[in-house]
Nucleic acid binder design. Structure first.
Lengths: 248, 248
DNA sequence: AGAGAACTACTCAGTCTGAGAAGGACCCAG
DNA sequence: CTGGGTCCTTCTCAGACTGAGTAGTTCTCT
């Protein structure tokens, strides 16, 4: 039997029904706090509970495309938002994670600078940016786990890649970049050392030779402006003070 | 409508058929070379081509369980092999990656010390350990991509976790551990510095206070024996010499 | 005008790293 | 049995990096 004959005689319906969905953990920084995008479920199961935005993957739709589409539907952000970073987080497929049927969900994390308030999606679900430390203790399905994994991924990516530049505007100051790290880790950093470190990593940022129009809101000189460099990985990495407790 | 009513009226068949499979990138070290487990496909499509071991996920089977089962079927390794490490790599779901139907594959990487020769699986596929630099340029489906991603994951894990101890026996010498790194990166390391580094990372290895029975095959003193420590992450990391070219 | 804030730059001591070398212990060949 | 070669382990040393502190300067706010 050759490939063509085989395909002609092949019956996809012979396999048990499994649904594939995408869920998106979208992070942004608003008012100095890390926010995650949540939606309130409008239909069973878990009607009324907060959950991650997401939905079924179209039959001929690529996985990242599905994630971008779902995110766009929930937030109203143009699908091709220039500064949006989307990457696969992992796949969650415990047999009992959804009571309806076997659902395997491919989770994505998205990072973006301060996004507009989400518009309620076409399916009339309420959507909102929620500060990470005010998020509901319980989310629908296994979404609490996914959000926790997403935060871990964000931290890891911030240390080893120029991801932080995705959270700030096109042009930014070193202090704005530092604020991203301080926000995600929730602790202050030594301004001088951070400055030295960022400028010493090749390709992380490049100077625009301009400065801000005004000094900081509470005083201080005008800061130099930078834009993202061309590095894909940070060498050496920007390691954060590692709390020993989290290690073992 | 409450959850129970909803579930009763829910028809899983309404959704388009998508198959979920697992593919496993299994690594081991044999004769000083990194080997990957491949199988020769016994049926269309791509009959006769080399591919990764894998298969369909059972309707009520967890994803890691399915991966372990498929690996066991291909290699004859006991499912609960003590020193086997299995972790999710990523999910590959391009709509056209399998000509039969929409197949979303969750890839896993497995690491283990020198495993026995694989037994041909129940489906009579030929299975073999293939040295990484002798592997076929083309594998079935998108499996070449998955193998490349698996290698990258292996390197990353070796640097940041005690994964290397999974490639050696229960008790091992520092030199054996060094050989793992040299094999995966394909370049020699400074023995003295490696030694110092390994012993300085808390929880990486712990001494057994014994030595090998004999010196090395080509001379040299008996080496001290160690076993894996209890650390889950290496702090500080065991960073390999990063070739600058690979960075950008 | 003065106080306070904060961007940037500098210093300094402690630590880590890569490279080299030395001291033995051991295997193998002759 | 002896000598050459191997290689595990420890040591040394210079250079790089890090965390912490300080200082100059410029700016906003009151």
């Amino acid at each position: 039997m050759n490939d063509a004959d085989f395909l002609a005689s092949y019956d996809p319906r012979a396999y048990p029904p499994v649904a594939v969905t995408v869920d998106i953990v979208a992070f942004t920084i608003r008012q100095g706090a890390l926010n995650v995008l949540l939606v309130r479920r409008a239909c069973p199961p878990s009607e009324g509970m907060w959950a991650l935005p997401g939905g079924f993957v179209g039959q001929w739709e690529d996985l990242p495309t599905a994630a971008a589409r779902e995110l766009a539907e929930e937030t109203g952000v143009a699908t091709a938002h220039r500064r949006l970073h989307l990457e696969q987080l992992g796949t969650y497929g415990a047999p009992d994670r959804d009571p309806r049927m076997r659902v395997v969900s491919v989770a994505y994390v998205a990072f973006a600078p301060d996004l507009p308030d989400p518009v309620s999606g076409s399916d009339a679900r309420e959507a909102a940016w929620v500060p990470m430390d005010e998020r509901p203790a319980e989310l629908a399905f296994d979404h609490s786990t996914i959000v926790a994994d997403g935060l871990e991924r964000a931290r890891s990516k911030l240390e080893y890649t120029p991801l932080a530049t995705k959270f700030v505007g096109e042009e930014f100051t070193i202090a704005e970049l530092r604020a991203v790290y301080e926000t995600v880790w929730g602790e202050p950093l030594h301004a001088g050392n951070f400055h030295r470190k960022v400028l010493s990593v090749p390709g992380f940022v490049e100077s625009t030779n301009t400065t801000t129009e005004r000094g900081g809101a509470r005083g201080g000189p005008r800061a130099k402006l930078y834009r993202a460099g061309d590095a894909r990985l940070l060498h050496p990495a920007l390691l954060m003070p590692s709390r020993e407790e989290t290690v073992r």
